[in-house]
């Protein structure tokens, strides 16, 4: 196994931030906030967060905040489980878009990453404090209703188990202190079974391996690279305690030191 090229990965991510015009930039303009989160978290895990201008990023993130912050932002999306099911906020995916739960989470994660506490105090404490404003029990019950015969979770009750969905559900159950609902051994075995002959892991039975742990920067060998899969590759290596990387918190998908800073003021 070759070493991880930390410098090259960092340079690649910074170059994407500067990229001007291509097909991808255009169709992802509404989810730029996600891209910022993937890219910046990867940089931090690589110990290279200094490579970007934090002030510029924060001011852009704040520009994306809905002026009427506090309004619940799922008005045009289905009740599909995301990690964000239990959080409310008000950030859009980019300037000029409606606020959306997914981008709100990414925005809060980016702000947490860059340690802007004056903003984070509200946003991240809301991540904690607002838990009491929703019916946590009902949210947990909904997640549990998505549990399947194999111990995994689908995105709706009855939906097929999917490793990505399981990450969201187990993460949400962890954050709400409800991990006792997980059939640990059954689910653990199902997840073990996702490892394919090439060593990679797939998301569902009889699907191809994706880069949860290939350590590459594309989804599969020889495919084109992107920030999304670079993040997952580096995050996977971090979970496996790859030398030189910061460790990542599996529930919040942020570096452990960032999570500690927020919750324990360390």
């Amino acid at each position: 196994m070759g070493g991880l090229e930390e410098e090259k990965h960092a340079r690649y991510i910074v170059s994407v931030e500067k990229k001007k015009d291509d097909f991808e930039a255009l169709v992802i303009e509404h989810l730029r906030m996600n891209g910022a989160y993937w890219g910046l978290t990867t940089l931090d895990l690589l110990n290279k967060i200094g490579a970007i201008d934090a002030d510029e990023v924060v001011s852009w993130v704040m520009e994306c905040q809905d002026k009427d912050c506090g309004k619940f932002v799922t008005h045009n999306e289905r009740c599909v489980i995301h990690l964000t099911s239990v959080i409310s906020g008000g950030f859009a995916g980019n300037l000029g878009h409606d606020p959306h739960l997914l981008y709100t989470l990414s925005a809060v994660q980016v702000l947490a990453l860059l340690d802007r506490f004056s903003y984070c105090a509200i946003c991240c404490l809301s991540l904690l404090g607002r838990l009491s404003k929703i019916n946590v029990e009902k949210a947990v019950n909904y997640i549990v209703s998505c549990k399947n015969l194999d111990g995994g979770f689908g995105s709706i009750p009855g939906g097929e188990s999917h490793a990505g969905q399981i990450f969201c559900c187990v993460g949400a159950l962890a954050i709400t202190g409800s991990l006792h609902h997980v059939d640990r051994d059954l689910l653990g075995w199902w997840l073990c079974e996702r490892q394919c002959k090439d060593g990679g892991l797939s998301g569902r039975p009889e699907k191809l391996a994706d880069d949860n742990d290939n350590g590459g920067i594309s989804d599969r060998p020889d495919n084109a690279v992107d920030v999304f899969h670079t993040f997952f590759g580096v995050a996977g290596l971090s979970l496996m305690e790859y030398p030189g990387l910061k460790s990542i918190d599996p529930a919040y998908a942020l570096p452990v030191d960032v999570v500690n800073r927020i919750f324990f003021r360390k």
Binding site: K20, A25, L26, W60, G96
Partner: peptide
């Protein structure tokens, strides 16, 4: 026109028709 704010972090050069 789109308001990218005073300091656009990642301006996108959209195609003209878009």
């Amino acid at each position: 026109p789109q308001d990218d704010g005073p300091n656009p972090v990642a301006p996108i050069a959209y195609r003209d028709d878009f």
